[in-house]
């Protein structure tokens, strides 16, 4: 495997199969002790990928409504702040 490809995450499904997501964007599984790329994007595989990706949605924290979608807040008047002395 190319040395620059790095492990992103591992996911164990209910049936015990472990999937490995690598930084090349591909899924791999272990076959005969070696990593093998999941080649065919069948409907079954797509469902697995969807299921895997659904695991990574952030849970609630104590920060509510903070804009983390890349948009800026609605314009508010900015507060002037002094530059502190050294």
């Amino acid at each position: 495997m190319n040395e620059k490809i790095k492990l992103v995450t591992q996911v164990t499904l209910e049936n015990g199969t472990v999937y490995y997501l690598y930084s090349d964007g591909n899924l791999y599984t272990q076959e005969n002790g070696k990593l093998a790329k999941v080649q065919n994007l069948t409907d079954g595989n797509k469902k697995i990928i969807e299921k895997i990706m659904s695991l990574y949605k952030p849970a609630k924290t104590d920060v509510i409504d903070r804009d983390i979608t890349g948009k800026t807040k609605k314009t508010e008047e900015k507060v002037d702040v002094e530059i502190p002395e050294m």
């Binding site: 990574y56 952030p58 920060v63 903070r66 890349g70 800026t72 807040k73």
Partner: peptide, 27 residues
């Protein structure tokens, strides 16, 4: 400290976009 994380536009400086899961890193 959470309030201090944000810049003047309210964007959290400790948060970034995660290219692998297409979510904002907030944890």
């Amino acid at each position: 400290y959470h309030a201090l994380c944000a810049d003047e536009n309210g964007q959290d400086r400790l948060v970034s976009y995660n290219k692998y899961c297409n979510q904002y890193n907030a944890t």
